[in-house]
């Protein structure tokens, strides 16, 4: 591996992560390490803590015990850098319904401090089969189109860590296939975490965590 290649290797380490909400323990001492080129699949029944573990890995939720570490090229990255580091997709993530898809993407790019052109936006939308729909307000999108838009949002800053909670929710067959191709393509340059109960997506995992109810 070249020095440049090594510098781009991202590592996500979950070290004995536990999370409780009051008396209810959602996660109990979960540990895993996943690097660029690998997929970590998290599976388990409803309420087993898959989404919580994704949010803990995102450092949006602090673990009750244990810690989450991000390393890029062996160097630890602070939680504050998360907006540059993570691409995040979740059923809980919503866009501004009154803004167009292009306005949403432009705003999130500006908020991340990256420059983006109209061509970049149209190209991203076209790659997700949303070409020509950038001027439509997101409120007029179907749930499947909103799910596709989430990929444009998650990938616009080329993050080294991609966290996908229910990656194919609301998608039709074509959309599911598109996302699976995207995961396969992204795997070369990214560290990917998927929370899912779809057997095909669990099968994409190099490391699998099975959470209990």
């Amino acid at each position: 591996m070249t020095t440049d290649g090594k510098a781009r290797v991202f590592e996500l380490a979950l070290e004995s992560v536990s999370k409780s909400y009051g008396a209810r323990q959602v996660l109990r001492s979960v540990s895993a390490t996943v690097r660029t080129g690998q997929v970590l699949a998290i599976t388990g029944p409803n309420g087993s803590g898959k989404s919580t573990l994704i949010k803990v890995a995102c450092r949006l939720v602090r673990p009750t015990h244990g810690q989450v570490l991000w390393k890029l090229g062996g160097k630890e990255i602070p939680a504050e850098a998360g907006r540059k580091i993570i691409g995040f997709i979740s059923p809980d993530l919503m866009f501004y319904d009154e803004l167009t898809a292009a306005e949403n993407l432009r705003f999130f790019a500006q908020a991340r401090g990256i420059k983006i052109t109209d061509e970049d936006i149209e190209s991203a939308l076209r790659s997700l089969h949303l070409g020509g729909r950038g001027a439509d307000v997101v409120g007029s999108y179907s749930s499947g189109m909103k799910q596709r838009l989430k990929y444009a949002f998650a990938l616009q800053h080329d993050p080294p860590l991609l966290l996908l909670d229910e990656p194919t929710a609301n998608l039709d067959t074509q959309g599911v296939s598109l996302v699976h191709d995207l995961i396969e393509d992204s795997k070369r340059s990214k560290c990917i975490v998927i929370a899912t109960n779809e057997p095909e997506e669990v099968g994409l995992g190099d490391i699998i965590i099975k959470l209990g109810a």
Partner: peptide, 9 residues
């Protein structure tokens, strides 16, 4: 929309 704002800004 707060979640999208939290992870991007």
């Amino acid at each position: 929309t707060a979640l999208a704002l939290r992870v991007s800004a």
